[in-house]
Nucleic acid binder design. Structure first.
Length: 508
RNA sequence: GGGCGCGUAGCUCAACGGCAGAGCAGUGGCCUUUUAAGCCAUUGGUUGGAGGUUCGAAUCCUCCCGCGCUCACCA
């Protein structure tokens, strides 16, 4: 990335302008600015004073990035944009003097940040504008913004020929955000989602906690971890793949309701639903079981939807989705039957189930356990069809080493997953709190881990010790915030809801 | 990892075996209520990279790099 030494013609021209300003004694990057209103406030205040038929003109000092310039001889129109909207500047030789007008005309460019003051007024065309009496550069832009031009249509800014190449948009997210207002909006929604979730959790008497990202033993999910190393301690560490085992230790410690919103890291495939690091909400609720957590999940998402979307309905990739109705609760085996025609109870072992799946031409990974096969079938055949909010419940034990079995069937665990828009958004279960049962689950996993299934996690002795002190019965829950954001912002790719998504390293 | 597709000016895109172009941006000029302002003129390219085929390659072939979609893998 040697661009700084390889300027384009446009950049060289702007550097010359910058040098000229400096030569004239004008600092193009001053440390302080003045501002009386945001653009949106100024427009609102002006419209209010207009209604009151106030004789006193409204004065304003505004700041923003120049988004368009229209020069017409001795007057110049320009739009500036701040974080709250855009507003038109009107610069006229009569008000400024020809010299100042020429200064703007010759040395100010689209992309520059400027400060301008004067009186608010309405142009002949009816647009609320600032009649500029004074202006100054507050940050000169060297590189042209990757967008052509703005158009104002009925008060809405239409941006033409704007940055569209997804690779450039992700690699230079700053440029993407600078020119694509709809991208900024996605991240406002994302922030509103986490805010609403925190508000809800806090209102339900949960305490927000932070647990280690760097962990000596990883666990809580089926995934391969990233590995790192502490130099002084000469100790290998893992980036967490879930928060689960630490959060449940806190229940042992006496907290009844804990949650954490933070980053998980999984060293696995990257695609439109998976980024190597992603944001999870996990919570653990003492004295609740998975049925209670299902109810809670509905309440939580209903609240979040109302807060963020202002209602319960939204459209995802052409499908209308309503959070306001009770989520159907379907037993996993029923869902599999409905979408594949396979009766799980007719295939009690991996070999017979694999044969049944092969008969249907489903992909069957070699050496997979029965639980893994069911999980695969779920992902490929069932999940994409679950558009409306739906819970599937009662999962196979082999793929749920931290969940409590059904009293009536040790091979099935009290676990559910929530689906929406064709993908999984949350996963929850009645947490296993029997240290002896947990030990045997770990041992089972360790055997499989040695046998080569790298996604299983190793024994966590300390977690078992914690559990031996006594862990209250509890329901636990995890939800991908990125995926919820995809749903609420109608984005098909997880990269659109992550500010700086991971991309392959590029030699520059 | 497999398949398909894409990569051309700062941005958005044409040209698809025969002189590498347009709009916007930029630069110079005209223009005192414009709003993708308009008008005149004009700068800007190792066509992602390296090889090959050909009289001639942005275009066809091979490899490499990157991205997208998809399958596989994967919560």
């Amino acid at each position: 990335m040697d661009e700084t030494h390889d300027y384009t013609d446009i950049e060289r021209g702007r550097l010359e302008k910058l040098q000229h300003l400096r030569a004239e004694g004008i600092e193009p990057f001053p440390p302080r600015v003045e501002r009386s209103h945001t653009n949106a406030e100024a427009i609102k205040a002006f419209e209010k004073s207009e209604k009151k038929k106030s004789k006193k003109p409204l004065r304003a000092t505004l700041v923003g990035r120049v988004r368009s310039i229209r020069t017409m001889g001795k007057i110049i129109f320009a739009h500036i944009e701040d974080g709250h909207g855009s507003l038109q500047l009107f610069l006229r030789a009569n008000d400024l003097g020809e010299e100042k007008l020429e200064l703007f005309r010759n040395y100010y460019d689209i992309g520059d940040f400027v400060q301008a003051s004067g009186e608010m007024f309405r142009t002949r065309a009816g647009e609320v504008s600032l009649r500029v009496e004074e202006f100054r550069m507050i940050a000169k832009a060297i590189t042209p913004l990757p967008a052509a031009k703005d158009e104002e249509v009925a008060g809405e800014v239409v941006r033409h020929a704007t940055l569209a190449d997804p690779e450039l948009r992700y690699r230079q997210r700053y440029a993407d955000l600078a020119v694509n207002p709809q991208v900024r909006e996605i991240f406002r929604v994302r922030a509103a989602i986490t805010r609403a979730l925190r508000e809800f959790m806090d209102s339900q008497d949960f305490i927000e906690v932070e647990t280690p990202v760097l962990q000596p033993v990883y666990g809580g999910a089926a995934a391969r971890p990233f590995t790192t190393h502490h130099n002084q301690l000469k100790q290998d560490l893992y980036l967490r793949i879930s928060f689960e085992l630490y959060l449940k230790r806190l229940l042992v410690g006496g907290f009844e309701r804990v949650y954490e919103i933070g980053r998980d890291f999984r060293n696995e495939g990257v695609d439109r639903k998976h980024n190597p690091e992603f944001t999870m909400l996990e919570f653990y609720m003492a004295y609740a079981d998975y049925q209670r957590v299902m109810e809670f999940t509905e309440e939580m998402l209903l609240f979040t939807g109302k807060q963020v979307l202002g209602g319960t309905k939204f459209t995802y990739q052409g499908n209308k989705i309503d959070l306001g109705v009770d989520w159907p609760r379907i037993e996993l085996s029923e869902a599999v039957l409905e979408f594949t025609g396979i009766h799980l109870k007719d295939y009690p072992d991996a070999a017979s189930l694999a044969a049944a799946m092969m008969a249907k031409k489903y992909n069957v990974p070699a050496g997979a356990s029965r639980g893994k096969l069911i999980d695969d079938m779920l992902g490929a055949q069932v999940e994409p069809r679950l558009i409306q909010p739906t819970f599937l419940y009662n999962y196979p034990r082999e793929v749920s080493p931290l969940a409590k079995s059904l009293p009536s069937n040790p091979q099935i665990v009290e676990r559910f997953e929530g689906y929406m828009g064709g993908f999984e958004i949350c996963n929850a279960f009645t947490e296993l709190n029997d240290p002896l049962d947990q030990l045997s689950r770990f041992e089972e996993m360790s055997r499989n881990l040695k046998a080569g299934d790298e996604e299983l996690h190793p024994m966590d002795e300390d977690y078992l010790r914690a559990m031996r002190y006594g862990m209250p019965p509890n329901g636990g829950f995890g939800m991908g915030i990125d995926r919820l954001t995809m749903l609420f912002t109608d984005q098909a790719n997880i990269r659109e809801v992550i500010l700086f998504p991971h991309l392959r390293k590029r030699e520059e």
